[in-house]
Design a binder for these strands. Structure first.
Lengths: 364, 364
DNA sequence: GACAATCTGTCAACCGGTTGCCATCTATTG
DNA sequence: CAATAGATGGCAACCGGTTGACAGATTGTC
């Protein structure tokens, strides 16, 4: 299992008083040859400021606990010494690590990229570090990773979890947990509302003369794959299109190529895939087989990942605001850290159709 | 500044005895409601095994320091309690954090993805966590990030650094540092040898009837951009092609689009770009302007990133073994951790041309 | 069997912050 | 002016491992 840690932002020393004067030359004060004594500690500050170390600790982390005068003296001393808290020393007694865990199915999948970015940005704003781990689409690996992480982080974000609702709730009973791309009772979730985007896609396809649509599904354990299929079915019902569901071996470009055969066999003239990777692979394979896109078959992906507009024709896709999902999930966690048990409901974000060249009028 | 931490692999408790028996049910032994007492400690093990905590510590981290018998007893106890070391507690007295820092110019640039992967995989094998930070192409940001990271990691990898050689050496005098995509005297470096790949590219272009070539450069501070341009010049000399160097505003798809105008103005029929992102943007813009690729203009990128084969035609590119670079750099660091000051020379890895559809015979 | 060399486990100090409790000191009020 | 509440700083214990120093046990040697 691979785990990635996104060190979002290292606070100057505590997130307070962030303005560091660039007064002197840009020299590092403590230049030590080998591995001798390292950075200044609160004890050094205490000595310099003529107070007790505990007072320094309070001045730097408990706003208002010390008098304004002492506060100032200590802050000056801290700045003079170029003090940085030792995160390990802080984490030891408190258990607070200033980190948020994020588990994704596959680090190399660009879909997760925006989620990571979003979570990182929001965490960063509050001096939280993001730790990434990978589940490789396996519920077991995911659970193991989650358990291990949980001891090291203050909270956990699960992007597209593959494990049971029950297991997720168990984790959530231990530390704050937020879920993306899935609804789990009793756990705060951030879920793109696919209906709008799917409606737009199917309406557009119907308007372009399509009558039979195929949906290439994602991983069987993916809640979101089921959800998208339901959305496609509902929209097809409404717009009077036939809809058929096809399996994919894996939610990648390669999986998309492999699905081409089934798509052709299905007789559908329009395809919506579980994600963009599948759409791209499918388009490549169809074009290689001489099928013209979109003249003969229209293709619509999901997510609008990096590279979706590299293809010719560029990929039409239902964009999920992945960055917002990551950001919202992180915000939920940050909220819970503050003690707000708050609403554990579902946060919904909107999806929208991005029309590019891979979908269009059916030329019979 | 954004910093990402790649938590590569969390060892079972110390990397030794990794087989965890899945004996009982999959219940978490310490189920605590709120934030009560957490995981088992070496003190718990000591009590259970009837020895002193320090003996437990030694048994778990200093192989051979305790008798085989005691070792066994302690390991059994540790397993029974499902013990995991507390990384914070360990880092505090030792300073060893089991982490490697990696600074890249841009987290969203897929070029760095393979480097990250490579470093992560290699670090992972030795139970090291990877910490990522972003420099946003700024030497100042990079230096700040590097300084901050340095106090938290055991060693640092700089992928495509933008700061001075001098600054890099200063960092390296503090803790182990390895550099990728650049040569810095006195610091271990991993550098793709671009000559082979460029030679292949230029030879192939010459053979296809091209006489005038343009190189679209990358960031001015990029050592590798200069190096590639030198390689292109040398190869063009050899194969008797004219070569002209064009600037780009930024090394992205957008920068590539903007460069299209200059490319057309240069009269070149073949283009090599600093990286694939530029090549893709350039190709999009040229095609939009009605230029046929590769019939009128051949395009060759650099790196072979994710998505390079999404385009139509697929992108011909000089592949750098980025994954290997990351992996090698991490290996260098791990070596230095073991006390091997070793050779601080340059590790060279090979590049090769990947011929796809965007380059070919010039059709006048 | 006496004595040295080697093993093995224990003691205690330490890493650098945090925090409950208490002693002062100051300010407010009667 | 005395009594009292609140603000402020100090003391010391603690978080969970690590490690140098040392003593007791074991083994080997002559």
């Amino acid at each position: 299992m691979a785990t990635v840690l996104l060190f979002v932002a290292m606070p100057d020393y505590d997130g307070a008083v962030t303005q560091a004067t660039n007064s002197g030359a840009a020299t590092v004060p403590t230049r030590r040859g080998r591995g001798e004594k390292s950075s200044p500690t609160i004890y050094d500050i205490a000595k310099l400021a003529g107070v007790n170390p505990s007072t320094v600790s309070r001045a730097l982390s408990k706003p208002g606990r010390v008098s304004a005068k002492t506060q100032k003296i200590i802050e000056d001393a801290a700045e003079q010494l170029n003090y940085r808290v030792n995160p390990f020393a802080r984490a030891l007694p408190t258990g607070r690590t200033q980190t948020i865990g994020l588990i994704v199915a596959d680090i190399t999948n660009p879909t997760f990229f925006d989620i990571i970015r979003g979570a990182e940005t929001t965490g960063s704003a509050r001096d939280y570090t993001l730790v990434l781990a990978e589940s490789a689409e396996s519920p077991e690996t995911e659970l193991t990773a989650a358990r291990r992480m949980l001891s090291t982080v203050d909270g956990l974000i699960l992007a597209s979890p593959r494990m049971d609702d029950e297991q997720i709730r168990a984790l959530a009973s231990d530390k704050p947990v937020a879920v993306i791309n899935r609804e789990v009772d009793g756990v705060p979730c951030v879920v793109p509302d696919v209906n709008k985007g799917i409606s737009q896609a199917v309406r557009s396809l119907a308007a372009n003369g399509h009558h039979q649509l195929a949906f290439v599904a994602g991983p069987p354990l993916s809640w979101m794959s089921r959800r998208r299929w339901e959305g496609v079915q509902a929209a097809c019902d409404w717009y009077k299109l036939g809809a058929v569901r096809l399996e994919s071996s894996k939610p990648t470009v390669d999986g998309g190529r492999q699905a081409a055969r089934d798509v052709l066999g299905s007789g559908a003239t329009a395809v919506i895939t579980y994600n963009d990777l599948l759409a791209i692979g499918l388009m490549q394979e169809l074009q290689a087989a001489g099928v013209r896109v979109p003249d003969q078959i229209s293709i619509v992906g999901f997510d609008d990942i990096f590279g979706a507009d590299f293809t010719t024709p560029a990929l039409t896709t239902v964009r999920s605001p992945l960055g917002e999902c990551g950001s919202r999930a992180a915000a939920l966690l940050l909220d819970m850290f503050l003690g707000n048990e708050g609403p554990v409901g579902v946060v919904r974000v909107d999806t929208e159709l991005v029309v590019r060249g891979s979908s269009g009028r059916l030329i019979a």
